[in-house]
């Protein structure tokens, strides 16, 4: 069963094409790394799927139904840099935001919601920081708060935008554990990822993207030297490292 079917997505920025004709289908319960050079449109792809930015064309089906009907099944972890961490709020409050879609208009989160949010913080090892102002958290801790918020959303398909960027070892481990737990529960996860060295460890599927998909499929088959060279084009400095790794592996 395909959790997600993406058909012919195209996006332009200022009349410049950012994504061209992206089509792929993601099987249920898979962990997909979205990989490609800077400016390849990785974040743009998730944002256009989630309808955060307008598409020129394209269609998204979630478990065979239109995206709009299935929105509650979708969770999103934005890039950490997208919000103002000086905002006057604490970790628990941010996690509670994950429940806003369930709570509905004009109502306030109650005791049950707070309890659940607290459990989500525990799952990422952040329960001791619940009342901490968010600007006083380290980058990794902020990322874990975002993870807890995604957990609180209780979605079936998760999109994560560079969750591993600039985090400490504890957070990296927390993200890994969460990804594995989600996989076990049959949830589907798509992650924008930069670090080529860890792709094989983290993901069972790969989307190699450079404005248009170069390849999509199981990591063993897709994550090869030739495909990477095609994706990254001239950016060989990264590839030299990678090719030695691949040949050794």
């Amino acid at each position: 069963m395909n959790a997600l079917e993406i058909k012919n997505i195209s996006v332009t920025y200022d009349k410049q094409p950012a994504l061209e004709d992206v089509t792929f289908s993601v099987p249920e319960g898979s962990l997909t790394g979205i990989i490609g050079p800077n400016g390849a449109g990785k974040s743009t792809l998730i944002k256009s799927i989630l309808r955060l930015i307008p598409k020129l064309s394209g269609d998204v089906k979630v478990y065979g139904k239109p995206y709009k009907e299935q929105r509650k099944m979708i969770g999103y972890v934005p890039q950490r840099s997208e919000v103002d961490w000086d905002f006057p709020t604490n970790a628990l409050d941010v996690v509670l935001m994950g429940r806003y879609g369930h709570i509905g208009w004009l109502k306030r989160p109650g005791k049950k919601e707070k309890q659940f949010a607290m459990e989500c913080l525990e799952k990422v090892g952040m329960q001791d920081y619940a009342k901490r102002q968010i600007s006083q958290l380290s980058g990794g801790q902020q990322q874990r708060v975002f993870l807890a918020r995604a957990l609180a959303q209780d979605a079936q398909i998760y999109f994560m935008d560079e969750p591993f960027a600039g985090v400490d070892a504890a957070t990296e481990k927390a993200i890994m554990n969460l990804l594995q737990e989600w996989k076990k529960q049959g949830k589907t996860v798509l992650v924008v990822h930069h670090d080529l060295q860890t792709v094989r460890d983290y993901f069972d599927h790969c989307l190699l993207l450079n404005k248009t998909p170069v390849k999509f499929g199981p990591t063993d088959k897709v994550f090869t030297y030739d495909n990477l060279q095609e994706t990254y084009g001239g950016a060989l400095s990264i590839l030299t490292q990678e090719s030695t790794l691949l040949q050794e592996g």
Binding site: L52, G75, E82, Y100
Partner: peptide, 22 residues
């Protein structure tokens, strides 16, 4: 006061809020 929760999330993290369908 009525829209407090909605204002809060729309100001703090508009993209995430859109993702939630707000």
């Amino acid at each position: 006061s009525l829209f407090f929760k909605e204002f809060k999330i729309a100001v703090f993290d508009p993209n995430y809020a859109k993702g939630l369908g707000i």
